[in-house]
Simulated scan of single mutants.
Amino acid sequence: MFFTTKKAILASILLLLAVAAAIGLYFWEIPTTKNTTSSTSSKETAMIEESKPAKPTVEEQLKTIISDMTLDQKIGQLFLARVPETNQIEDIKTYHLGGYLLFGRDVQNETTESLTKKIASYQEAADFPLLIGMDEEGGTVSRLSQNENILKEPFKSPQAIYQADGLEGIKTDIDQKATLFKQLGIHIGLFPVADISTDTNSFIYNRTIGLDVEGTSQYVVEVVKELNKNHIGSTLKHFPGSGETQDTHTEIVRDTRSLEELKKNSIPPFQAGIEAGADSVLVSHNIVEAIDKHVPASISPKIHEILRDELKFNGVTMTDDMDMNGLSDFISQEQAALSALKAGNDMILSSSYQKQIPVIKSAVQSGDYPEAQLDESVLRILTWKHKLGLISLN
Protein backbone atom coordinates (compact mmCIF):
# COMPACT_ATOMS: atom_id res chain seq x y z
CA MET A 1 0.00 0.00 0.00
CA PHE A 2 2.80 2.36 0.94
CA PHE A 3 4.75 1.54 -2.18
CA THR A 4 1.68 2.00 -4.30
CA THR A 5 1.03 5.37 -2.71
CA LYS A 6 4.67 6.30 -3.08
CA LYS A 7 4.66 5.32 -6.73
CA ALA A 8 1.52 7.33 -7.27
CA ILE A 9 3.01 10.38 -5.60
CA LEU A 10 6.21 10.03 -7.61
CA ALA A 11 4.24 9.69 -10.82
CA SER A 12 2.26 12.79 -9.95
CA ILE A 13 5.42 14.77 -9.26
CA LEU A 14 6.97 13.67 -12.57
CA LEU A 15 3.79 14.61 -14.39
CA LEU A 16 3.77 18.06 -12.79
CA LEU A 17 7.42 18.58 -13.67
CA ALA A 18 6.75 17.61 -17.29
CA VAL A 19 3.81 20.01 -17.52
CA ALA A 20 5.86 22.82 -15.94
CA ALA A 21 8.71 22.17 -18.36
CA ALA A 22 6.36 22.23 -21.31
CA ILE A 23 4.79 25.48 -20.17
CA GLY A 24 8.22 27.06 -19.62
CA LEU A 25 9.41 25.98 -23.05
CA TYR A 26 6.24 27.37 -24.61
CA PHE A 27 6.68 30.78 -23.03
CA TRP A 28 10.39 30.75 -23.68
CA GLU A 29 9.81 30.18 -27.37
CA ILE A 30 7.03 32.74 -27.82
CA PRO A 31 9.32 35.79 -28.21
CA THR A 32 11.57 33.87 -30.56
CA THR A 33 8.64 32.77 -32.66
CA LYS A 34 7.22 36.29 -32.80
CA ASN A 35 10.54 37.87 -33.77
CA THR A 36 11.11 35.31 -36.48
CA THR A 37 7.64 35.87 -37.87
CA SER A 38 8.09 39.66 -37.76
CA SER A 39 11.49 39.47 -39.44
CA THR A 40 10.15 37.22 -42.15
CA SER A 41 7.20 39.54 -42.76
CA SER A 42 9.50 42.56 -43.04
CA LYS A 43 11.70 40.80 -45.55
CA GLU A 44 8.71 39.64 -47.55
CA THR A 45 7.24 43.15 -47.49
CA ALA A 46 10.52 44.64 -48.65
CA MET A 47 10.72 42.10 -51.48
CA ILE A 48 7.16 42.93 -52.52
CA GLU A 49 7.89 46.67 -52.44
CA GLU A 50 11.04 46.17 -54.53
CA SER A 51 9.10 44.14 -57.07
CA LYS A 52 6.52 46.92 -57.53
CA PRO A 53 7.17 49.15 -60.58
CA ALA A 54 8.25 52.71 -59.72
CA LYS A 55 5.55 55.35 -60.11
CA PRO A 56 6.01 57.14 -63.47
CA THR A 57 7.31 60.68 -63.27
CA VAL A 58 5.29 63.64 -64.53
CA GLU A 59 7.49 63.79 -67.62
CA GLU A 60 7.01 60.09 -68.31
CA GLN A 61 3.25 60.37 -67.96
CA LEU A 62 3.12 63.39 -70.27
CA LYS A 63 5.28 61.62 -72.82
CA THR A 64 2.81 58.75 -72.76
CA ILE A 65 0.01 61.21 -73.49
CA ILE A 66 2.03 62.67 -76.37
CA SER A 67 2.72 59.22 -77.80
CA ASP A 68 -1.05 58.67 -78.06
CA MET A 69 -1.71 62.03 -79.78
CA THR A 70 -2.21 62.34 -83.50
CA LEU A 71 0.09 64.57 -85.54
CA ASP A 72 -2.74 67.08 -85.94
CA GLN A 73 -3.30 67.19 -82.20
CA LYS A 74 0.39 67.77 -81.48
CA ILE A 75 0.69 70.59 -84.03
CA GLY A 76 -2.47 72.23 -82.70
CA GLN A 77 -0.95 72.40 -79.21
CA LEU A 78 1.70 74.79 -80.55
CA PHE A 79 -0.84 77.57 -81.16
CA LEU A 80 -2.02 80.18 -78.71
CA ALA A 81 -4.50 81.49 -81.24
CA ARG A 82 -6.30 84.79 -81.22
CA VAL A 83 -9.98 83.98 -80.76
CA PRO A 84 -11.49 84.16 -84.26
CA GLU A 85 -14.54 86.32 -84.96
CA THR A 86 -16.47 83.28 -86.18
CA ASN A 87 -16.31 79.49 -85.73
CA GLN A 88 -14.66 79.71 -82.30
CA ILE A 89 -15.88 76.27 -81.21
CA GLU A 90 -15.43 74.64 -84.61
CA ASP A 91 -11.82 75.82 -84.92
CA ILE A 92 -10.91 74.40 -81.53
CA LYS A 93 -12.16 71.01 -82.72
CA THR A 94 -10.78 71.23 -86.25
CA TYR A 95 -7.29 72.48 -85.41
CA HIS A 96 -6.91 71.02 -81.89
CA LEU A 97 -5.65 74.40 -80.67
CA GLY A 98 -3.42 74.64 -77.62
CA GLY A 99 -4.98 77.83 -76.34
CA TYR A 100 -6.99 80.94 -77.02
CA LEU A 101 -5.81 84.52 -76.58
CA LEU A 102 -8.68 86.92 -75.84
CA PHE A 103 -8.68 90.52 -77.05
CA GLY A 104 -10.98 93.48 -76.41
CA ARG A 105 -13.64 92.35 -78.85
CA ASP A 106 -13.94 89.04 -76.98
CA VAL A 107 -15.00 90.73 -73.74
CA GLN A 108 -17.10 93.52 -75.20
CA ASN A 109 -20.63 93.59 -73.73
CA GLU A 110 -19.86 90.55 -71.58
CA THR A 111 -20.54 90.20 -67.88
CA THR A 112 -18.36 88.23 -65.50
CA GLU A 113 -20.88 85.40 -65.65
CA SER A 114 -21.27 85.37 -69.44
CA LEU A 115 -17.52 85.58 -70.09
CA THR A 116 -16.92 82.73 -67.66
CA LYS A 117 -19.49 80.63 -69.53
CA LYS A 118 -17.96 81.55 -72.90
CA ILE A 119 -14.48 80.47 -71.78
CA ALA A 120 -15.92 77.28 -70.28
CA SER A 121 -17.56 76.47 -73.63
CA TYR A 122 -14.15 76.73 -75.28
CA GLN A 123 -12.72 74.25 -72.79
CA GLU A 124 -15.58 71.82 -73.33
CA ALA A 125 -14.84 71.74 -77.05
CA ALA A 126 -11.13 70.94 -76.64
CA ASP A 127 -9.42 67.53 -76.86
CA PHE A 128 -6.88 68.75 -74.33
CA PRO A 129 -7.33 71.62 -71.86
CA LEU A 130 -6.84 75.04 -73.44
CA LEU A 131 -4.39 77.61 -72.16
CA ILE A 132 -6.50 80.77 -71.93
CA GLY A 133 -4.58 84.04 -72.11
CA MET A 134 -5.31 87.75 -72.09
CA ASP A 135 -2.92 90.69 -72.36
CA GLU A 136 -3.30 92.28 -68.94
CA GLU A 137 -0.14 94.25 -68.29
CA GLY A 138 -2.23 97.08 -66.86
CA GLY A 139 -2.43 100.67 -68.07
CA THR A 140 -2.44 100.98 -71.85
CA VAL A 141 -2.44 97.20 -72.35
CA SER A 142 -5.40 95.79 -70.46
CA ARG A 143 -8.21 94.10 -72.39
CA LEU A 144 -10.52 93.60 -69.42
CA SER A 145 -10.35 97.31 -68.63
CA GLN A 146 -12.50 98.00 -71.69
CA ASN A 147 -15.55 96.50 -69.98
CA GLU A 148 -16.96 98.15 -66.87
CA ASN A 149 -19.27 95.16 -66.33
CA ILE A 150 -16.23 93.06 -65.50
CA LEU A 151 -13.79 95.58 -64.08
CA LYS A 152 -15.13 98.65 -62.30
CA GLU A 153 -11.72 100.31 -62.20
CA PRO A 154 -9.14 99.52 -64.92
CA PHE A 155 -5.91 97.87 -63.87
CA LYS A 156 -3.31 100.59 -63.48
CA SER A 157 0.07 100.39 -65.18
CA PRO A 158 2.88 98.78 -63.17
CA GLN A 159 4.74 102.08 -63.31
CA ALA A 160 1.85 104.02 -61.74
CA ILE A 161 1.40 101.37 -59.05
CA TYR A 162 5.10 101.29 -58.24
CA GLN A 163 5.35 105.05 -57.97
CA ALA A 164 2.44 105.08 -55.52
CA ASP A 165 3.03 101.95 -53.43
CA GLY A 166 6.32 100.31 -54.48
CA LEU A 167 6.69 96.58 -54.91
CA GLU A 168 4.08 95.84 -52.26
CA GLY A 169 1.55 97.63 -54.46
CA ILE A 170 2.68 95.50 -57.41
CA LYS A 171 2.09 92.32 -55.40
CA THR A 172 -1.38 93.46 -54.35
CA ASP A 173 -2.24 94.24 -57.98
CA ILE A 174 -1.16 90.76 -59.08
CA ASP A 175 -3.21 89.14 -56.32
CA GLN A 176 -6.27 91.06 -57.55
CA LYS A 177 -5.65 90.03 -61.15
CA ALA A 178 -5.14 86.41 -60.12
CA THR A 179 -8.46 86.34 -58.27
CA LEU A 180 -10.30 87.67 -61.33
CA PHE A 181 -8.41 85.40 -63.73
CA LYS A 182 -9.34 82.30 -61.75
CA GLN A 183 -12.97 83.36 -61.60
CA LEU A 184 -13.09 83.78 -65.37
CA GLY A 185 -10.93 80.79 -66.32
CA ILE A 186 -7.87 82.74 -67.51
CA HIS A 187 -4.41 81.25 -66.91
CA ILE A 188 -1.91 83.79 -68.24
CA GLY A 189 -1.85 87.59 -68.53
CA LEU A 190 1.27 87.84 -70.74
CA PHE A 191 3.38 89.84 -68.29
CA PRO A 192 5.72 91.07 -66.80
CA VAL A 193 7.31 93.40 -69.32
CA ALA A 194 11.03 92.90 -68.74
CA ASP A 195 12.11 95.61 -71.17
CA ILE A 196 14.19 98.44 -69.71
CA SER A 197 13.27 102.01 -70.55
CA THR A 198 13.93 105.28 -68.77
CA ASP A 199 13.22 107.45 -71.83
CA THR A 200 9.74 108.96 -71.53
CA ASN A 201 9.66 109.43 -75.31
CA SER A 202 10.14 105.72 -76.02
CA PHE A 203 7.10 103.82 -77.31
CA ILE A 204 7.67 101.09 -74.72
CA TYR A 205 8.28 103.38 -71.73
CA ASN A 206 4.71 103.45 -70.34
CA ARG A 207 4.54 99.65 -70.41
CA THR A 208 7.76 99.18 -68.41
CA ILE A 209 8.43 99.73 -64.74
CA GLY A 210 10.50 102.77 -65.81
CA LEU A 211 13.58 101.79 -63.80
CA ASP A 212 17.21 100.93 -64.53
CA VAL A 213 18.64 97.42 -64.92
CA GLU A 214 18.72 96.66 -61.21
CA GLY A 215 15.27 98.08 -60.51
CA THR A 216 13.69 96.34 -63.49
CA SER A 217 15.29 93.02 -62.54
CA GLN A 218 13.99 93.28 -58.99
CA TYR A 219 10.50 94.11 -60.28
CA VAL A 220 10.52 91.13 -62.65
CA VAL A 221 11.61 88.72 -59.91
CA GLU A 222 8.85 89.86 -57.55
CA VAL A 223 6.19 89.59 -60.26
CA VAL A 224 7.28 86.08 -61.25
CA LYS A 225 7.28 84.91 -57.64
CA GLU A 226 3.86 86.40 -56.98
CA LEU A 227 2.39 84.83 -60.11
CA ASN A 228 3.85 81.45 -59.15
CA LYS A 229 2.33 81.80 -55.69
CA ASN A 230 -1.06 82.43 -57.29
CA HIS A 231 -0.68 79.60 -59.86
CA ILE A 232 -0.97 82.04 -62.77
CA GLY A 233 1.45 81.68 -65.68
CA SER A 234 4.23 84.23 -66.12
CA THR A 235 5.56 85.54 -69.45
CA LEU A 236 8.74 87.61 -69.73
CA LYS A 237 8.66 89.92 -72.72
CA HIS A 238 10.00 91.05 -75.18
CA PHE A 239 13.27 89.07 -75.36
CA PRO A 240 16.08 90.10 -75.70
CA GLY A 241 14.68 93.51 -74.76
CA SER A 242 13.14 96.30 -76.84
CA GLY A 243 15.43 99.05 -75.65
CA GLU A 244 14.57 102.48 -77.04
CA THR A 245 13.81 101.20 -80.56
CA GLN A 246 10.69 101.74 -82.66
CA ASP A 247 7.48 99.73 -82.47
CA THR A 248 7.35 96.38 -84.32
CA HIS A 249 3.56 96.61 -84.39
CA THR A 250 3.93 99.08 -87.25
CA GLU A 251 7.28 98.47 -88.96
CA ILE A 252 10.41 96.37 -89.31
CA VAL A 253 12.74 97.40 -86.50
CA ARG A 254 16.51 97.03 -86.19
CA ASP A 255 18.25 97.06 -82.83
CA THR A 256 21.82 98.28 -83.41
CA ARG A 257 23.12 97.96 -79.85
CA SER A 258 26.35 96.03 -79.31
CA LEU A 259 26.32 92.56 -77.79
CA GLU A 260 28.13 93.95 -74.75
CA GLU A 261 25.40 96.54 -74.24
CA LEU A 262 22.66 93.95 -74.64
CA LYS A 263 24.24 91.68 -72.06
CA LYS A 264 24.74 94.58 -69.66
CA ASN A 265 21.62 96.69 -70.12
CA SER A 266 18.94 94.53 -71.72
CA ILE A 267 19.18 90.81 -70.92
CA PRO A 268 19.69 90.87 -67.10
CA PRO A 269 15.97 91.26 -66.19
CA PHE A 270 15.18 88.21 -68.33
CA GLN A 271 17.92 86.22 -66.66
CA ALA A 272 16.64 87.29 -63.24
CA GLY A 273 13.10 86.27 -64.16
CA ILE A 274 14.24 82.90 -65.47
CA GLU A 275 16.17 82.22 -62.27
CA ALA A 276 13.06 83.19 -60.28
CA GLY A 277 11.04 80.50 -62.08
CA ALA A 278 9.42 82.20 -65.09
CA ASP A 279 7.14 79.89 -67.08
CA SER A 280 7.55 81.40 -70.53
CA VAL A 281 9.50 83.94 -72.54
CA LEU A 282 7.98 85.93 -75.41
CA VAL A 283 10.46 86.76 -78.17
CA SER A 284 10.28 90.07 -80.01
CA HIS A 285 10.25 90.74 -83.75
CA ASN A 286 13.21 93.13 -83.55
CA ILE A 287 16.15 92.38 -85.80
CA VAL A 288 18.92 92.34 -83.18
CA GLU A 289 21.95 92.96 -85.33
CA ALA A 290 24.59 92.05 -82.73
CA ILE A 291 23.11 88.53 -82.49
CA ASP A 292 21.49 87.96 -85.89
CA LYS A 293 21.39 90.79 -88.41
CA HIS A 294 19.50 88.77 -91.01
CA VAL A 295 16.11 87.93 -89.48
CA PRO A 296 13.78 89.09 -86.66
CA ALA A 297 14.50 87.63 -83.24
CA SER A 298 11.30 85.60 -83.27
CA ILE A 299 12.53 83.49 -86.20
CA SER A 300 16.25 83.50 -85.31
CA PRO A 301 17.89 80.27 -84.06
CA LYS A 302 20.76 82.34 -82.62
CA ILE A 303 18.42 84.26 -80.33
CA HIS A 304 16.91 81.03 -79.04
CA GLU A 305 20.34 79.49 -78.50
CA ILE A 306 21.09 82.32 -76.06
CA LEU A 307 17.84 81.58 -74.21
CA ARG A 308 18.42 77.85 -73.98
CA ASP A 309 22.21 77.53 -73.79
CA GLU A 310 23.34 80.69 -72.00
CA LEU A 311 20.34 81.56 -69.83
CA LYS A 312 19.44 77.87 -69.29
CA PHE A 313 15.74 78.48 -69.87
CA ASN A 314 13.74 75.24 -70.01
CA GLY A 315 10.22 76.64 -70.16
CA VAL A 316 7.97 77.64 -73.05
CA THR A 317 9.29 80.08 -75.64
CA MET A 318 6.68 81.88 -77.70
CA THR A 319 6.57 84.44 -80.47
CA ASP A 320 5.09 87.87 -80.31
CA ASP A 321 1.91 88.28 -82.37
CA MET A 322 2.55 86.97 -85.89
CA ASP A 323 0.39 89.70 -87.42
CA MET A 324 2.69 92.54 -86.35
CA ASN A 325 4.28 94.40 -89.26
CA GLY A 326 7.76 93.87 -87.85
CA LEU A 327 7.37 90.24 -88.93
CA SER A 328 4.56 90.19 -91.50
CA ASP A 329 6.42 92.72 -93.69
CA PHE A 330 9.49 90.49 -93.53
CA ILE A 331 8.08 87.00 -94.19
CA SER A 332 4.75 85.55 -95.34
CA GLN A 333 2.28 84.38 -92.70
CA GLU A 334 2.25 80.90 -94.25
CA GLN A 335 5.98 80.47 -93.67
CA ALA A 336 6.37 82.59 -90.53
CA ALA A 337 5.05 80.01 -88.04
CA LEU A 338 7.18 77.20 -89.44
CA SER A 339 10.28 79.43 -89.38
CA ALA A 340 9.53 80.36 -85.78
CA LEU A 341 9.23 76.72 -84.73
CA LYS A 342 12.39 75.70 -86.55
CA ALA A 343 14.20 78.58 -84.84
CA GLY A 344 13.27 77.15 -81.43
CA ASN A 345 9.88 78.55 -80.41
CA ASP A 346 7.41 76.23 -78.72
CA MET A 347 4.28 78.32 -79.16
CA ILE A 348 2.95 80.62 -81.86
CA LEU A 349 0.72 83.64 -81.18
CA SER A 350 -1.33 83.84 -84.33
CA SER A 351 -4.54 84.77 -86.09
CA SER A 352 -3.48 82.89 -89.23
CA TYR A 353 -3.30 79.37 -87.81
CA GLN A 354 -5.70 78.02 -90.48
CA LYS A 355 -3.08 78.51 -93.20
CA GLN A 356 -0.01 77.98 -91.01
CA ILE A 357 -0.91 74.56 -89.61
CA PRO A 358 -1.00 72.76 -93.01
CA VAL A 359 2.48 74.13 -93.81
CA ILE A 360 3.82 72.81 -90.52
CA LYS A 361 2.19 69.41 -91.03
CA SER A 362 3.77 69.05 -94.46
CA ALA A 363 7.16 70.01 -93.00
CA VAL A 364 6.88 67.31 -90.32
CA GLN A 365 5.83 64.69 -92.85
CA SER A 366 8.74 65.57 -95.14
CA GLY A 367 11.27 65.70 -92.29
CA ASP A 368 11.95 69.41 -92.75
CA TYR A 369 10.68 70.02 -89.21
CA PRO A 370 11.66 66.98 -87.10
CA GLU A 371 8.82 65.34 -85.18
CA ALA A 372 11.22 64.89 -82.26
CA GLN A 373 11.53 68.68 -82.02
CA LEU A 374 7.75 68.98 -82.27
CA ASP A 375 7.38 66.51 -79.39
CA GLU A 376 9.82 68.49 -77.24
CA SER A 377 7.74 71.62 -77.69
CA VAL A 378 4.50 69.79 -76.94
CA LEU A 379 6.08 68.36 -73.78
CA ARG A 380 7.03 71.85 -72.56
CA ILE A 381 3.51 73.12 -73.23
CA LEU A 382 1.81 70.18 -71.50
CA THR A 383 4.24 70.50 -68.59
CA TRP A 384 3.14 74.13 -68.22
CA LYS A 385 -0.52 73.14 -68.39
CA HIS A 386 0.07 70.51 -65.72
CA LYS A 387 1.77 73.07 -63.48
CA LEU A 388 -1.23 75.38 -63.85
CA GLY A 389 -3.60 72.57 -62.90
CA LEU A 390 -5.08 72.05 -66.35
CA ILE A 391 -3.83 68.48 -66.76
CA SER A 392 -4.30 65.96 -63.94
CA LEU A 393 -2.03 62.95 -63.66
CA ASN A 394 -1.96 59.87 -61.41
Rank of each mutant, 00 (worst) to 15 (best):
S328R: 13
L393E: 07
F181M: 15
I232F: 10
S51A: 15
A21I: 12
D72C: 02
L390V: 08
I267T: 02
I186A: 02
T248F: 13
I252G: 07
A343Q: 06
T256P: 08
L10A: 11
Q246D: 13
L341K: 02
L393Q: 08
E260G: 03
E214N: 12
P358D: 09
Y122H: 02
K342P: 00
D135T: 06
S42C: 01
G233C: 08
I204W: 09
T200M: 04
S42Q: 14
E260I: 05
L311K: 09
E60Y: 11
E29H: 09
P358N: 08
M322L: 14
I267W: 07
T248C: 10
I48W: 04
S392N: 13
L97G: 01
A18F: 15
F79P: 02
L80Y: 04
A297M: 03
K6E: 03
I204G: 10
D323H: 12
E113M: 01
S197F: 04
A337W: 09
N149E: 13
K237E: 10
L311M: 15
H249L: 10
K182N: 14
E113P: 05
P129D: 04
I209N: 05
I232C: 05
A336C: 09
Q77L: 10
E90K: 15
M318L: 15
S12V: 09
A46Y: 13
D255W: 04
L97D: 02
K43H: 13
I306Q: 03
E214V: 15
I204P: 08
D173Q: 14
S202I: 00
N325G: 00
S142L: 01
M347W: 04
A164N: 12
I331F: 00
A21T: 12
H187F: 11
V281E: 03
K93A: 09
L341R: 04
E376Y: 02
L341Y: 05
K152W: 00
L97C: 05
L78W: 10
D175Q: 14
G24D: 07
D368S: 13
T111K: 05
I252V: 15
E261W: 01
S362N: 12
K293Q: 11
S266H: 12
V378I: 07
G76D: 08
S38A: 14
I119K: 01
L115Y: 09
E113S: 10
Q176C: 01
D68A: 15
D106R: 02
S392A: 14
K93I: 04
G169A: 12
S351F: 01
